[in-house]
């Protein structure tokens, strides 16, 4: 554990000069809501086992792009996606791909904590159950415990696993949602402004958690807060008006952005 975190620190301090392996690739992705176009040919690589932050002013298309990555946009009937998105070099919009299995590999955490109005245990157990990951009752308990532990929630809730998940505080709820997402052992976790509904202390906890999760998962996070992007991510993509303005290592972006718009945005001149 100690070793690993040292490696982490190293990685953060001295990013590898060569590009790390891309877990997901978006190529020329455009999204239309009816006649309205929301994304204009966006291309972005998501490196493996890193946190990629998507930043930009509201309505810039960052959430839309995020929702393309696990095909959540499918649930909106007027939404149309063109271009190419791959996961491990496989097109996820391929009609042969089962969207349900795809989402099991790419988990998602939403802006507002949305636990099911069921017990904490059931919240976490739901995913493994529907995906048939459970051998028996004991195994399920194990998965739930491990997931809650990874989400740093277990010690707080271990005595009330069978109480309703909606009774937790906002920050705990959001960590429960993260536990729920990792319970199905996804490879990628998408987070859509996961801290926007939380207070600063809860936010700090979730950010800490994100940093720990990076060790095992590829994470894409949409965030409104520049500081958050700087704190948790290794790579940052700046969106504006449905286009990517700039992509790069977070440190580089925040210290020496090449684009003027990025600079304006991170210094708070617009957004």
């Amino acid at each position: 554990m100690n070793m690993l975190s040292e490696v982490d620190v190293e990685k953060k301090l001295y990013p590898a000069p060569d590009q790390p392996k891309a877990k997901m690739k978006g190529d020329n992705v455009s999204v239309f809501y009816g006649a309205k176009q929301a994304l204009f040919g966006v291309s972005l690589d998501v490196p493996e086992k890193m946190v990629t932050a998507l930043i930009g002013p509201s309505g810039c298309g960052k959430s839309t792009f995020l929702r393309c990555l696990n095909r959540m946009n499918d649930t909106i009937s007027i939404c149309r996606v063109t271009g190419n998105i791959t996961l491990d070099n496989r097109d996820i919009y391929d009609p042969k791909i089962d969207v349900v299995q795809l989402r099991a590999r790419i988990g998602m955490v939403f802006q507002k904590p949305n636990p099911f109005p069921k017990s904490i245990f059931e919240n976490v157990a739901y995913g493994p159950r529907i995906h048939g990951l459970v051998k028996d009752k004991h195994h399920l308990d194990e998965i739930v415990e491990k997931s809650l532990q990874r989400a740093g929630l277990f010690t707080e809730v271990k005595d009330r696993l069978h109480e309703s998940g909606t009774g937790l505080s906002g920050g705990q709820q959001q960590r429960l949602c993260i536990a729920r997402a990792i319970a199905v052992s996804p490879e990628v976790i998408l987070m859509d402004e996961p801290c926007s509904a939380l207070d600063p202390i809860a936010t700090a906890k979730v950010e800490e958690l994100i940093d720990e999760l990076r060790e095992n998962y590829t994470i894409v996070i949409v965030t409104h807060s520049m500081q958050q992007a700087a704190r948790v991510s290794q790579r940052t993509a700046m969106f504006h008006l449905g286009n990517i303005v700039e992509v790069g290592d977070t440190e580089m972006m925040f210290t020496s952005p090449t684009e003027k718009r990025t600079q304006d945005y991170i210094t708070g001149r617009f957004g």
Binding site: D98, Q101, I130, H131, G132, L133, V134, K135
Partner: peptide, 13 residues
């Protein structure tokens, strides 16, 4: 069919 690894099935039994 799934045996010890229930996740190997596409759909639940």
């Amino acid at each position: 069919i799934a045996g010890a690894d229930p996740a190997s099935l596409h759909s639940l039994p």
